[in-house]
Amino acid sequence: MTDALWYFARGSGVVSLLLLTVVVALGIGSRSGRPAFGLPRFAVSLLHRNAALLAIVFLVGHVLSLLFDPYAQLRLLDTVLPFAGHYRPVWQGLGTLGFDLLVALVGTSLLRHRLGARVWRTVHWLAYLCWPVALLHGLGTGTDNGTWWLWAISIACVVVVVAALAWRISPNFSRFPARADRAVAPRLRPHLEEVK
């Protein structure tokens, strides 16, 4: 039974990383305005959301299995507060941090109609922190670090995200490269002084 928990913890962690990689790539893809990966734009956006929700499910499984695993000795506090654990506190802490970030990202996204676009977008920039944290956590902690297959998976994930980022900054990323930027004209910015 304890072995099963341990295997599940490792497996669900790897699946979460794969899903998060897909989420990041689709998130970047949905920003383009082009039908990305052969999918229409709304499908890219829906898949991005659903993959993120699925990643949360696997991460909850990952954390729960470690809570009940006698070997990991994870305390409830460690699931929320990063870098306070006993077992490889830094690497495990990265996992906790990544989990916290993901909860913030998904939570604000689900509430974005209530929070407003500005708050949501600001928080969403954390995605670029969340993903590398998750990657490092996977590489540094656990039984599988140093195995060829975890390295292969990690490298594949990096390749996907780097490729998506390269596409993001390339000139043909936008569907309408000739489109003018929307920015408030400097002459209208606040410079007014109260005279009385």
Partner: peptide, 23 residues
């Protein structure tokens, strides 16, 4: 209270005025 309007075509538009008054 007196407020200076920027010298621009759209600065007198109703909602622009409210925005400018609000700083």
């Amino acid at each position: 209270t007196l407020h200076a309007a920027p010298d621009a075509f759209v600065s007198g538009e109703e909602t622009a005025v409210v925005s400018a008054i609000g700083g």
